[in-house]
Design a protein around this nucleic acid. Structure first.
Lengths: 200, 200
DNA sequence: ACCTGAACACCGTTCAAGT
DNA sequence: ACCTGAACACCGTTCAAGT
């Protein structure tokens, strides 16, 4: 670690994104101010404007980073279970829940609707779409293996994504009764929710 | 009751909640500041502190109001379809999607996780729990009618709520591909998602 | 008891200026 | 090109004071 700050930061843009992610993990969404992000990255509060048009733009970059990390995690789970289509779907879905539980503030930002005009952020759209496409692929694999009923894979993918995302969202909002969570784990709730979809 | 003071409001507390709901509908979450709420209610920016401990507390009240409205809408849909359990479930779920689509900002606040300590807001917990209990009742009705498979109603209720909530959340975040939405409506996506749950 | 106005620390954003 | 420091409007919150 350099004792003296170089006047120019090497890659301030990514350093700001990293700082934002760290603040989210530490202080949550409430602590995510542009000025705190700049402070943590070691620059003045106006410096981020050299790389981001506004706070929305930084949040878009942080969200995009989140979708890329999510994809890494989901793809790893899918790859580790490529031998059994049914288990591949279950474990990939479980990885989605794990991601939400491990970094709830980051997950919330990704889906918090703070971004009003996501059309303005093509990397965001691309990164989030890649996750959807992964689900479609897994659904198609399950269909080919006779584990999921045939039909338009896109529709089934949305159904499954909605179920898994809904579980993650309700869990983060503490909307799942604790009386229920004392009896069953989130994983069991997930398995129970997805079981009904399978052919047999 | 003593005669009304000349000051201003009779029931500032509810006027502030109403003002907040109106701002959400008009300007979205970004416009929801305590000062703007006070301005719209016709009082000074410090007046809300006579009725709410802080901004979180006002947001809790606005969220609670949202859960009560949601319950009204869901209960009305359930009551209008009490003759057919299967349709009752479908139409009540559809009412949930409609609520989210009609007042997206209010819906988002309810589930935005802005509330960190919902334990501190018992009316909030009570209002949101009432909706969950309605779903459990509908599930039990469906089970009694042989429309849903037997088993713990709480678990199935969470599965269904997660699916419906996930659809609403993904739709509001525009995460459902427009190529898909050009082919099918949200209602059809919902029906497709719930169909798999039924016995036959 | 209910509300006002001044005050404070913090925030997003802009901009002239420095390297 | 990249960054700083001052400046501005806005925000949440507190508090002494007014009715």
């Amino acid at each position: 670690m350099p004792a003296k700050k170089t006047y120019h930061h090497g890659d301030l843009k990514n350093a700001l994104i990293r700082a934002g992610v760290e603040i989210l993990a530490g202080q949550g969404i409430g602590g995510l101010s542009l000025r705190q992000v700049a402070l943590r990255a070691g620059v003045s509060h106006a410096a981020p404007y050299a790389h981001f048009a506004d706070k929305q733009s930084l949040i878009a970059a942080i969200s995009t980073d989140g979708f890329r990390r999510l994809y890494e995690k989901l793809a790893a789970a899918a790859h580790a279970n490529s031998a059994d289509p049914r288990q591949q779907l279950l474990e990939t879905a479980n990885a989605y829940l794990e991601f939400a539980a491990e970094d709830p503030a980051h997950f919330k930002v990704m889906f918090s609707g703070i971004l009003e005009q996501e059309k303005d952020y093509p990397e965001f759209v691309e990164a989030s779409q890649k996750n959807y496409e992964l689900v479609v692929e897994i659904v198609q694999t399950c269909q080919s293996a006779g584990v999921l009923p045939l039909g338009p894979a896109e529709r089934t993918a949305i159904s499954i994504w909605a179920t898994v995302h809904g579980l993650a969202a309700l869990a983060l909002e503490r909307q799942i009764p604790h009386t229920l969570l004392e009896q069953v784990s989130m994983r069991e709730l997930l398995l129970h929710s997805l079981e009904t979809l399978f052919v047999s």
